[in-house]
Design a protein around this nucleic acid. Structure first.
Lengths: 130, 130
DNA sequence: ATAAACGATAGAGTGAACTCTAGGTCAACG
DNA sequence: CGTTGACCTAGAGTTCACTCTATCGTTTAT
């Protein structure tokens, strides 16, 4: 079973434009062509899913390209590809902690917003009374 | 105690340029001026901390401006400001879940990368044998 | 009194990641 | 045989959030 670009767009949630852009940027070197038209296989979609996941977790396109290029290189895949992914996993774990801290801060600020607000206006009242 | 823009930059980790940019974008309507020079109070830094937190959690600048403007409006603060923050908190909770899902996916992909890689090259071997 | 240090503004430039447009190819259908 | 519809490329345009530059004003120390 193979897929057209619009079917892949449907399945992945990416726009057709974005897929072509990713290809142009070297993220999809594994995609076959038929008369110039891209023909996607099931496993290509697995790779695109990985790309989407890396994007969602903030990996820039040039880093994804590096990873993909390593993975297309027979000898280096287990070494360099896995190394990059493992490093990114740590990064995502840090993002999780940071996001949790931010959530705590937001909760704190929600609790104290009335006070912050009050203090600011008291200060301004003093200021304008001067 | 009051602070200059460079002291605020130090304390918040923002660049001086970014602080001025935020001011220009209407995020810091509460900052006083002395002879045109910005003078920051302690509670202004509390507001800037909130702004940083909202930015880190993906709120765009125009939405932060809307929130701040509501909070500078006496009558609406508890209603609209808290409402926006509460909605954003739900958003951040969803981000946390999504990030956790992405981490799971990355772990899964790390486990299966050797297989994805192998299948891709098998497929290409078949293709080039045709 | 003048130079250094720090502050200000306006506006141009940057980089990332798309998004859109124009113009073209190709296979299938009536 | 022509027209639709889906695909293609090259490249221009857009948005966001800064970042940088040029130029100017104000304190402060020597």
């Amino acid at each position: 079973m193979s897929y057209t670009i619009s079917q892949v767009a449907q399945r992945t949630g990416l726009s057709i434009h974005a897929i072509r852009y990713y290809d142009k940027e070297g993220l999809l070197p594994f995609v076959d062509r038929h008369n110039g038209t891209r023909v996607f296989q099931e496993q290509d979609i697995d790779w695109i899913d990985l790309i989407c996941c890396l994007k969602k977790t903030g990996m820039p396109i040039k880093d994804i390209r590096t990873l993909i290029q390593h993975c297309m290189d027979h000898d280096a895949v287990l070494d360099k590809g896995l190394e990059i992914l493992a490093r990114h996993r740590e990064n995502v774990e840090e993002q999780l902690k940071e996001l949790q801290r931010s959530l705590d801060t937001i909760n704190y600020k929600i609790k104290h917003l009335p006070r912050m607000y009050k203090e600011k206006f008291s200060a301004e009242a003093v200021g304008s009374a001067n």
